[in-house]
């Protein structure tokens, strides 16, 4: 079934938005996502391009300037709220895990 648009973020969406918390260009996001996750998450150029266009359309990021051929973007207020909502959702998931698995039965069996 198709996922509701931007209501829950995929891992790639999450890290792309997270990297735009600081003003940067697309190429910086590719590098930063790898660094932040210690190589666990790699965002491909095609995916990142479409995510940037999608986030611009949805008003989650905005352009801040152009340097040579590179365009910089940053999170908008709406983008920050979306990221925060996803963070809270993930936190709740962790809470559920801790409550049901770790606390009650002393770990995953």
């Amino acid at each position: 079934m198709a996922r509701d648009k931007l209501r829950t973020l995929t891992e790639q969406m999450f890290y792309t938005l997270l990297c735009f918390n600081k003003q940067c260009c697309g190429v910086d996001v590719m590098k930063r996502a790898r660094e932040v996750t210690e190589g666990r998450v790699c965002i491909g150029p095609g995916t990142l391009y479409n995510l940037i266009e999608q986030f611009l359309d949805a008003g989650l990021i905005c352009e801040t300037g152009v340097e040579g051929r590179r365009i910089s973007y940053i999170l908008t207020e709406k983008g920050k709220k979306t990221l925060e909502a996803e963070y809270n959702r993930l936190k709740k998931q962790m809470g559920d895990y801790n409550r049901l698995i770790s606390a009650e039965s002393g770990g995953l069996k």
């Binding site: 150029p45 095609g46 391009y49 266009e53 359309d57 051929r69 590179r70 365009i71």
Partner: peptide
């Protein structure tokens, strides 16, 4: 590409972004 069309070239800004990312 999200900004592409069958009948019109992509906006230069979008094409530059895609080219930059692909080159990287």
């Amino acid at each position: 590409p999200r900004a592409s069309s069958e009948f019109e070239s992509m906006p230069a800004e979008s094409q530059t972004l895609l080219d930059e990312l692909c080159m990287e």
